[in-house]
Design a protein around this nucleic acid. Sequence first.
DNA 1: CGTGTCGTTGAGGCCTGTCAACCTACGTGG
DNA 2: CCACGTAGGTTGACAGGCCTCAACGACACG
Lengths: 240, 240
Amino acid sequence: MLQLHTVHEVGLFGLLIAKIRMHGELTERDVIAIRDAPYSLVDYQRNHRITNFRKVPRSVHVLTSGLACLSIVASDGRRQITRLLLPGDFCNAFDAQPLASLEGIDILVPSRMAAIPDNAFRQISGSVSMQHALFAMVIDAAASARSVIASLGRGDARGRVAFLLCDLAQRMTARGLLSTPGDPLPLRQDHIADATGLTSVHVNRMLAQLRQEGLVSGGGTIVQIADVTGLRVAAGLQHC
Amino acid sequence: MLQLHTVHEVGLFGLLIAKIRMHGELTERDVIAIRDAPYSLVDYQRNHRITNFRKVPRSVHVLTSGLACLSIVASDGRRQITRLLLPGDFCNAFDAQPLASLEGIDILVPSRMAAIPDNAFRQISGSVSMQHALFAMVIDAAASARSVIASLGRGDARGRVAFLLCDLAQRMTARGLLSTPGDPLPLRQDHIADATGLTSVHVNRMLAQLRQEGLVSGGGTIVQIADVTGLRVAAGLQHC
DNA sequence: CGTGTCGTTGAGGCCTGTCAACCTACGTGG
DNA sequence: CCACGTAGGTTGACAGGCCTCAACGACACG
């Protein structure tokens, strides 16, 4: 039985299925429908920005590998990352529906997406169980965004960085993208800066401080969490 | 015909209906179902904080008058408002589902809520049209939260205040709670502070500056927008 | 008239941004 | 093999924005 589940989750959409399952029970039929969905693959290079998927037919894009984000470019030209997109995440629908004409999708690491035609996905998502799970997923995304608001509004630089790392590690671990929260995170310092609203110079200082406190390890380009509990406390919110 | 709509929308749940309608077409049947929903009314005093609605049966709460917010209290004791709740908004479900055990509901102004029993609302929201509208509503809430993230992450104090005022005025105007965006907003300076992550002292200074620039008017407790366009520019994001 | 709430104003200090320089690692081409 | 360029990280000096603390004013209310 467990074996069966595992088999279902190793395909291209395994991570997507795992993610949706975090928010509601899926039937065997749902899982098969997703697994067998028609799709086309698209690769994107690092630093590419997508403001509009000009794909015919219109498609739901799912990140299958790499790392991307939703971001808003302020009028002074600086970018704010509003949400990190991990493999298994939607990129242009549901919990990651970009804010019209304001939010874009930035590719942070060479990535691949699967584009599922809209009408195909509409059929897949028509079942009651899928509707419930997707609904719960979006509700969770909204709540999660509000916790980021709290971190940005109330936290100092150290707390913001700590929160981001905790949050990302938790999401990645839950989806099996990290075997333990202490594994290296796929972030560069300027990604952290764009996500926390800080400058990369100051992020560097904060990481140095967190390393000295024993909460973070890894040098150079590598960021690893050394002490999850301590980092959560540093984040300043009870929860991460 | 228009007359009919108006009649439907003046009841206790008129604002709720108006809000849901912003995100999808409702059938006559949907509207009637909401209008005739069973409910009980509860009044709350200013500064009351609700961390858990202990209501039997469990209920969906809808704000019918006043002003409330979702908020998170950081470990240093300061409060961050993560979302303002206006009359017509849900308070503990859907687009305002509090983050478990972290987010609470604060009453900012003496308010009244209608509590609709869960199972009654489940029936009401079972129709395809309601499902679609509610789904779109939550997706919009998530996107809206991300624009707040951008404002907090990238904006300076002046921009944050400007953004908050624009955003609130737009939401209130869209729902008929303001006749024009220039009407007085129901916010005290410390509410603005808690929503923007600033101190009330600094909010005061920013409001003084915005008044001097001619973007905001009203003295003392009253905050009015004098120049919507100018304030949007000051907010620093293309959109508000 | 006392009390409490909310807004206003000033002085000073800390946190974070800005600017700039340098360093390492890595790949490329002569 | 070495010169060179690029990307990313590290470090220091300095300035400015925002917080803190504190006092005061305006106003409502019992």
